[in-house]
Design a binder for these strands. Structure first.
Length: 239
DNA sequence: GCAAAGATTTGCT
DNA sequence: GCAAATCTTTGCC
C-alpha cells in the first residue's frame, strides 16, 4: 500500500496544489458494489496533466454560478472528488482544493497508466458501449471482450487515459464517486504519493482547454499544468 | 416550463 | 477539418 496523499498539500492555493498533484498516483481498487462483473484488478496511474479552476470569479469554473447542487462539493473541504457529466456523455474527475467555502478544484486531464492496463481497456470499451445515464445503474453490463476497444485498432497503453473523459472511463469514475474522500487510505478511488519523488520531470504551463466561452483573461491564464515529455498528455498523440 | 450550451471524444469528409 | 452523439444544468419566459 502506498502513502495516502496529504490533504495539506491540497488545502493550499490551487496553483501550488497543482504542482503537488502532478506526478501523484491515482489508485482504483475493485468496488464490487458498483463495478461491472469481472472487474478484479487494481488500476494505478500517474497524473501528468491537470487544470485549475479557482473561485467564483473564474468565468470558466462551474463555481461561477455560485453554490448549486452540482458544484456543492467544490465548496467543501479539500481532497474530495468533484465528478460531473459533460456533453451528456463524458464524466470528468476533479480534486477539490483550498479550505472549505472557497470553491476551487483541479481537473485531472491525463494519466499515464502504470498498473491494470487490461482493466482500463475493458472499462473504456464498457463506457463506449452504453449511455452515460446507465453508468450509475446497477452493475449489470456484460463483461467486454478483452483487448478490444470497439475501434479497428486497440488503444496504445499510454493513450488509455489521455484526456479528462478518458481518465474517467479508464478508471470507471462516474457521479457515484462525487464527494468521495480521495485522501482516505481505504477509499476505492484515491490519491497516493508517488513512491519516488520524481523531481526530475519538468512541468509546463499553458492556457486551459475548451473554455472559450469564458472570455479574457480566463481563456489565457496559464492554469493548465503538464509533465513535460509525457506520452500521455491530452490531445493528439505527441510524436 | 422550455431552450440552449457545455471543463469531450470520435469518426467521417 | 467538421459535425454528431447525448443529457444535465442553467437561464429566461
Amino acid at each position: 500500500m502506498g502513502r495516502p496523499f496529504p490533504r495539506d498539500l491540497l488545502a493550499r492555493p490551487t496553483l501550488d496544489a497543482a504542482r503537488s498533484l502532478l506526478g501523484a498516483w491515482l489508485v482504483r481498487d475493485p468496488d464490487p458494489r458498483r463495478d461491472a462483473p469481472g472487474v478484479s484488478g487494481r488500476r494505478v496511474g500517474r497524473i501528468v496533466e491537470v487544470e485549475a479552476y479557482i473561485g467564483e470569479g473564474d468565468r470558466a469554473s462551474h463555481a461561477r454560478f455560485g453554490r448549486t447542487r452540482r458544484n456543492a462539493v467544490m465548496f467543501g473541504p479539500p481532497g474530495h472528488a468533484y465528478v460531473y457529466l459533460v456533453y451528456g456523455m463524458h464524466h470528468c474527475l476533479n480534486v477539490v482544493t483550498e479550505p472549505a467555502d472557497r470553491p476551487a478544484a483541479l481537473l485531472v486531464r491525463a494519466i499515464e497508466p502504470i498498473l491494470g492496463i487490461d482493466e482500463m481497456r475493458a472499462a473504456r470499451a464498457r463506457a463506449r458501449s452504453r449511455p452515460a445515464r446507465a453508468a450509475q445503474a446497477a452493475p449489470t453490463s456484460p463483461a467486454p471482450v478483452a483487448g478490444l476497444s470497439g475501434s479497428r485498432h486497440p488503444v496504445a497503453a499510454h493513450r488509455l487515459a489521455a484526456g479528462p473523459g478518458l481518465v474517467a472511463a479508464a478508471f470507471d469514475v462516474d457521479r457515484s464517486y462525487n464527494g468521495l474522500d480521495l485522501c482516505a487510505a481505504d477509499a476505492p478511488l484515491r490519491l497516493e504519493l508517488a513512491p519516488d519523488d520524481d523531481a526530475s520531470t519538468d512541468m509546463l504551463t499553458t492556457p486551459r482547454i475548451g473554455i472559450g466561452y469564458a472570455g479574457e483573461p480566463w481563456v489565457s491564464v496559464p492554469w493548465r499544468f503538464v509533465m513535460a515529455g509525457s506520452p500521455s498528455i491530452s490531445g493528439p498523440a505527441p510524436r
